[in-house]
Write a protein that binds this DNA or RNA. Structure first.
Length: 938
RNA sequence: GCGCGCUUAGCUCAGUGGUAGAGCACUUCCUUCACACGGAAGGGGUCGCAGGUUCAAGUCCUGCAGCGCGCACCA
C-alpha cells in the first residue's frame, strides 16, 4: 500500500478480505492436521432459526465465537467452527401458515393437506433460509462453511430417528394420555419449559353450588361455596372436593350438589390435595382442564368432560349457550348467567400466575391428550459433570486429552449458572416430545391399520412399529402424524453435525468440542439436553466450557422485541459503521454475566476506534515511508526512555489480555486494548517519538550531544523499528476483535512479509499470538521498571505544565518559553521530548533559576518547571491554584502518615506495601516543599 | 415461598483487600504537518443503608431496602 486514505472506509475492505479468506480456505478445518503439536479446537454454533434474521443477540453471540475461533487459530490450533441452522418447528410453521392465510391460499392447513403444506414450507425455507448465514458472513464469522448443517438434512434426520428408536427400545420413550400444556393458537402440545408463568391481575370468583338431598333429588336451601379463577371451566366440573380432615365439611362428603348451568348432580368427595386453609376449603373439580383436578379424578374415577376444545373454544359439551365461544368470552357469559341466577357469591381481585405459550403468547390450556414422552437419559453423569461448582477445578486440558467424568469436567462461565442447571437436573419431569405440527421430524412410529373384519372375540391389541425405516408391509400401517420437538433434534447437534453415528475423522478429531457460547435462557432447552445426549450417545461430554452471554436490551433496559421496534438491524449498523466497529462496540460493553444495554453510541465508539487505529498506521507510513521494511532490528543501545516505556506497556498489555482471555473476560480485553493503544501508544508514545523522527527530518543533528547526522538516522530507524514492533503486535492482539481492519493493515503495511505463509505470511489469521517478553528479552532491551519510571515522570511533568497553560488562559497554539530547574540530570533528548509535548518554543535549563515574583510553577521528581510570564500573572489566581494543590498534597500526606504512624500497620502489613506507603509519603512531602516554595515566591 | 443478580460520576458501566476508574455527556481552549470519527486541560463520587471482620473494605461476612430475573406454585 503506497498511501492510505485519511479515514478508514470499512465497506470495500470487509468484502475484499472475507472473499480472500474464503478463497484460501482459511476457515476450513482439516482433521488430518490435528496432532500433538496442533491440538484441535472446536465450537458448534447455536444454530439459528433457518428463516430467521440476524439480531443483536446473534451479533454478540457469534462475535464471541469468532473471537474464540480466531484466537485459537493464532494459538496454533486446528480450528473447527461448525455452522448451521435449525428448522425451528413452531416458529417456521407459524410464519408460513400466516403468510399463506394472508395470501388467501388457505384458511387452515388441513385444506392443503400435509404434503402440499410441507411443499410450501420447503419453498419458504429455500427462499428465506440462508439469509442469516449471509448475515453472519458480513459480521466476519470464520465458520467452516463447507460443513454447514441443517437439522432437517437427510443425514441429520436419520440421527434423530435413530435416537428416537434407540430410546424407545430402551423403554425411555413412551406414549401416554396425559394432561399437557396446550397452545390453542399453534394447536400443539408444548414442553413445560416452553411455558412462561406471567403474573396477572385477575379475579377469584366465589360460586354457590346448591346442595342436593340425594342424587337426583331436589335442591335444599344449602350451598357449597367454591372459588375459581376460571369460571368457564365449571361447565366441565365433575365433583366438589374437600380435605378429608376438614371438620367443617366432613358430613357433606358423599352427598351431591347441583352443578349450575349444566343442571347436573356432582358428588362431594374427599381428597388430600385440597388445602383447607385456602379459600373456602371447597374445590370445584374439572378433571379435563386442570392437572390437579385430573389427578383427583383419577383417584375417584370421575368422568372427564371436555368443555374446551383444542382451538380454545367451548365444545358442545359446554351447553348450547356456550358452544363455540372463545374461553374468555365464555368466562364472561358464565359469570353473567351465574350472577342472574344469584349463584355468584362474590368477586375478589386476585393476582396470580398464568401460563403463557412462549411461542404464541396466548394462555396455555391444560389439555388431555395422547403424547410421546421421554424419560431423560444419562441424568446422573450429566448432573455430576457440572455439579461440583467448577470454580476451583483446573482449567480442562485441550480437547483430545484423556477423558474423565470427574465433577467439574464442564465449566460454566459465569459459574453461578451451574446452580440453576443442577436445580433443574434434580427436578426433572418427563419431556413431552411430540408436537401436533407438520414441519419437523415425524415420529418414526407406525400403527397397524384396523383390519377389515375385526375378530369376533376380544379386539386385537393395537400394534405398534418403531423403526428408522417404515415397516416392510407399509400399506398395512399408518405413521404417527405428529412431529418431534425441535429441541429433540438440536440436542444432538454437537455430534450429529460431525457424521455420527459413523466414527468419522471429524468426530474423532473434534469431539468433544471446546467451548459453547449461548444464552442462559436456553440452559434447559438446549445445554442440559445436549450434555445428556452427549453422555448417552457418545459416552462423553459434548463441550468443556459453556459461556453464557448476557441478554441485549435497549437503552431503557427493555428486551429487544419486534413489537416495540427497539431492535436495531445489525446489517444497517454494519453498513453505517463497519462490522469491526459493531463487534468492538458490542464486546466492549458486554461484561461477563451481565445484561447489555445496547446503545448505538457504542458502535460509534467502535468506529472511532478503528479510525484511530487506521490513522496510527497512516502515521507510520508517513514517517517511515511506505517502502521501509517492517522487520527492522531494534538496537537496545539506541532505545529512548519512551521506547522502553512503550515496550513495557505492551508487555503488560499482553499479560493482561492473556489473563482476561483465560477467564473469558472479553470486555476486559477490549478495555486493555483500548487503554494501551489510545491512552498509552497514541497519546504518549507517538507524540514522544516525534522528537526523534522530526529531528532527523530536518536534517539537523540529534539533540544528543556529540551525535552526528549518521547517529540521528540510526536513532530514527530504531524508532521506526519500535513502532513496527508495537504495531505488528497490536494488530495481532486486535485481530480476533477487528478481523477486517487488522488484515487490511497487516497486508498494507507489509507486516506479513518475511513470515512463513502459515504464520502470518498469507494472512494475519494465522499469525502467531503475541507473547510477553521473557526475562532474557527484558534484560536485552533493559526493560526494567526504572526505565519506565523516568518516562512516566516526564509525562507527569508535561501534564502539569500543560495545566499551567490552561490555568493562565494561554491558547493551546501559542508557543511558550518554560524554564526547568532540574532535580536530576536530564539528557537533551528528554528535554526535546518535553518541549514537543508541552508545545513549547524552548525549555531553558537553569539549575540556579531565581523565578521572578509570581512565576507559576509545576513540580515533580524531575524538578521545577516554571512558566515565566512577567506581568501577565494574576498573583491571586496563582495563589489560589497553588493553595488548592497544597491542600490535596497535604491530605495525601495525612493519609499516608496516619498509616505509617499506626504501629499495627507497620507491624502487620506486607513489606512491599509498607515500602509503597513510605515512598508515597516521601513523594508527597517533596511536592509539598516545592509548592510551598512556589507560594512563598508570590 | 426458594434461588440468583444488580445498586460506584449526569448517563451506561468496569473495578480480582492496599492512592476511586473508563466511555459518553458537561466546561474551557485548539483545526499544531496520523486522526475534529481528533488533541489538551478541567469540573463532577459520604461506592444503596446499617452493623461486623481486618493494620486497611467499593472489594470479605451478616442484616435491611429498592430494582430485575429464574424456579415453584393453593383452586
Amino acid at each position: 500500500m503506497s498511501e492510505l486514505p485519511k479515514g478508514y472506509e470499512p465497506q470495500a475492505v470487509e468484502e475484499k478480505w472475507y472473499q480472500y479468506w474464503l478463497d484460501r480456505q482459511c476457515f476450513v478445518a482439516d482433521p488430518a492436521r490435528v496432532g500433538p503439536a496442533r491440538p484441535a479446537y472446536a465450537i458448534v454454533i447455536p444454530p439459528p432459526n433457518v428463516t430467521g434474521m440476524l439480531t443483536l443477540g446473534h451479533v454478540l453471540n457469534n462475535t464471541i465465537q469468532d473471537i474464540l475461533a480466531r484466537k485459537a487459530r493464532m494459538d496454533g490450533k486446528e480450528v473447527l467452527w461448525l455452522p448451521g441452522t435449525d428448522h425451528a418447528g413452531i416458529a417456521t410453521q407459524a410464519v408460513v401458515e400466516r403468510t399463506l392465510k394472508k395470501q388467501g391460499a388457505m384458511k387452515h392447513r388441513e385444506e392443503l393437506g400435509r404434503e402440499k403444506f410441507l411443499e410450501h414450507v420447503w419453498d419458504w425455507k429455500d427462499k428465506h433460509g440462508g439469509i442469516i448465514i449471509q448475515q453472519l458472513k458480513k459480521l466476519g464469522a470464520s465458520c467452516d462453511w463447507t460443513r454447514e448443517r441443517f437439522t432437517m438434512d437427510p443425514a441429520y434426520s436419520k440421527c434423530v430417528e435413530r435416537v428416537f428408536v434407540e430410546l424407545y427400545r430402551k423403554g425411555l420413550i413412551y406414549r401416554g394420555k396425559r394432561m399437557v400444556n396446550w397452545d390453542p393458537a399453534a394447536r400443539t402440545a408444548l414442553s413445560d419449559e416452553e411455558v412462561d408463568m406471567l403474573e396477572e391481575k385477575g379475579h377469584l370468583w366465589h360460586l354457590k353450588y346448591p346442595l342436593l338431598e340425594a342424587a337426583g333429588q331436589t335442591a335444599t336451601q344449602e350451598f357449597v361455596a367454591v372459588a375459581t379463577t376460571r369460571p368457564e371451566t365449571m361447565l366441565g366440573d365433575e365433583a366438589v372436593a374437600v380435605n378429608p380432615q376438614d371438620e367443617r365439611y366432613r358430613q357433606l362428603v358423599g352427598r351431591h350438589c347441583l352443578l349450575p348451568l349444566q343442571n347436573k348432580p356432582i358428588p362431594i368427595i374427599a381428597d388430600e390435595l385440597v388445602d383447607p386453609k385456602f379459600g373456602t376449603g371447597c374445590v370445584k373439580v374439572t378433571p379435563a382442564h386442570d392437572p390437579n383436578d385430573y389427578e383427583i379424578a383419577q383417584r375417584h374415577r370421575l368422568p372427564l368432560t371436555v368443555v374446551i376444545g383444542p382451538d380454545g373454544c367451548m365444545t358442545p359439551a359446554a351447553g348450547e349457550d356456550f358452544v363455540g365461544l372463545d374461553r374468555l368470552e365464555a368466562r364472561r357469559a358464565v359469570v353473567e348467567q351465574l350472577t342472574q341466577q344469584g349463584l355468584l357469591l362474590k368477586t375478589e381481585d386476585y393476582v396470580h400466575n398464568v401460563g403463557y405459550s412462549q411461542r404464541s403468547h396466548v394462555p396455555i390450556e391444560p389439555y388431555l391428550s395422547e403424547q410421546w414422552f421421554l424419560k431423560y437419559p444419562s441424568v446422573e453423569p450429566a448432573t455430576r459433570c457440572v455439579e461440583a461448582g467448577s470454580e476451583q477445578a483446573p482449567h480442562p486440558d485441550a480437547p483430545g486429552g484423556p477423558e474423565s467424568l470427574a465433577p467439574g469436567a464442564i465449566r460454566f462461565h459465569p459459574d453461578r449458572w451451574a446452580k440453576t442447571y443442577t436445580h433443574w437436573m434434580k427436578n426433572l419431569r418427563d419431556w413431552c416430545i411430540s408436537r401436533q405440527l407438520w414441519w419437523g421430524h415425524r415420529v418414526p412410529v407406525w400403527y397397524r391399520k384396523p383390519a377389515g373384519q375385526p375378530a369376533a372375540g376380544d379386539p386385537p391389541a393395537p400394534q405398534i412399529y418403531c423403526g428408522t425405516e417404515p415397516p416392510p408391509d407399509a400399506a398395512q400401517w399408518e405413521q404417527d402424524p405428529d412431529v418431534l420437538d425441535t429441541w429433540f433434534s438440536s440436542w444432538l447437534w454437537p455430534f450429529a453435525t460431525m457424521g455420527w453415528p459413523e466414527r468419522t475423522d471429524t468426530l474423532k478429531a473434534f469431539y468433544p468440542t471446546a467451548d459453547l457460547v449461548t444464552g442462559p435462557d436456553i440452559i434447559f432447552f438446549w445445554v442440559a439436553r445436549m450434555i445428556m445426549a452427549g453422555y448417552e450417545f457418545m459416552g462423553e461430554l459434548p463441550f468443556r466450557n459453556v459461556y453464557f452471554t448476557g441478554i441485549i436490551r435497549d437503552k431503557l433496559g427493555r428486551k429487544m422485541s419486534k413489537s416495540l421496534g427497539n431492535s436495531p438491524d445489525p446489517l444497517e449498523l454494519i453498513a453505517k459503521y463497519g462490522a469491526d466497529a459493531l463487534r468492538f462496540g458490542t464486546m466492549r460493553s458486554a461484561p461477563l454475566g451481565q445484561d447489555i444495554l445496547f446503545d448505538e453510541q457504542n458502535v460509534e465508539l467502535g468506529r472511532n476506534f478503528c479510525n484511530k487505529l487506521w490513522n496510527a498506521c497512516r502515521f507510520r507510513q508517513m514517517v517511515a515511508g511506505p517502502d521501509t521494511p517492517t522487520e527492522g532490528e531494534i538496537d537496545p543501545a539506541l532505545l529512548t526512555s519512551d521506547d522502553r516505556w512503550i515496550l513495557l506497556r505492551l508487555d503488560t498489555a499482553i499479560r493482561e489480555i492473556d489473563a482476561a482471555f483465560a477467564e473469558y473476560r472479553f470486555n476486559e480485553v477490549t478495555q486493555t486494548l483500548y487503554r494501551f493503544f489510545w491512552s498509552e501508544y497514541c497519546d504518549w508514545y507517538v507524540e514522544a517519538s516525534k522528537a526523534t523522527l522530526a529531528n532527523s527530518d530536518r536534517g539537523t543533528p540529534s539533540a544528543e550531544p556529540g551525535a552526528g547526522p549518521a547517529e540521528g538516522a540510526a536513532r530514527r530507524a530504531n524508532t521506526v523499528a519500535v513502532i513496527d514492533f508495537v504495531l505488528g503486535h497490536m494488530l495481532r492482539l486486535f485481530h480476533p476483535f477487528l478481523p477486517f481492519i487488522t488484515e487490511e493493515l497487516w497486508q498494507g503495511l507489509g507486516y506479513r512479509e518475511s513470515l512463513p505463509a502459515d504464520q502470518g505470511g498469507a494472512t494475519i489469521m494465522f499469525a502467531r499470538w503475541p507473547k510477553p517478553f521473557d526475562d532474557a528479552e527484558k534484560e536485552h532491551f533493559r526493560l526494567d521498571p526504572a526505565a519506565a519510571q523516568s518516562a512516566e515522570a516526564k509525562y507527569d511533568l508535561v501534564s502539569k505544565g500543560r495545566n499551567l497553560r490552561r490555568e493562565f488562559n494561554l491558547p493551546a497554539g501559542k508557543k511558550l518559553k518554560f524554564v526547568l530547574k532540574p532535580a536530576t540530570d536530564l539528557p537533551a533528548h528528554e528535554l526535546e521530548v518535553m518541549r514537543l509535548l508541552l508545545h513549547a518554543e524552548t525549555i531553558e535549563i537553569d539549575a540556579a533559576y531565581l523565578p521572578p515574583k509570581g512565576t507559576p510553577l509545576a513540580a515533580n521528581a524531575l524538578g521545577e518547571l516554571y512558566l515565566p510570564l512577567a506581568g501577565l500573572i494574576d498573583a491571586g489566581a496563582e495563589r489560589a491554584r497553588l493553595t488548592k494543590e497544597l491542600g490535596k498534597i497535604q491530605a495525601e500526606i495525612a493519609k499516608a502518615q496516619a498509616n505509617l504512624d499506626n504501629p499495627q500497620f507497620t507491624a502487620k502489613v506486607p513489606p512491599h506495601v509498607l515500602e509503597q506507603h513510605q515512598q508515597r509519603l516521601a513523594g508527597w512531602q517533596a511536592k509539598e516543599k516545592q509548592v510551598q516554595a512556589g507560594l512563598a515566591n508570590l
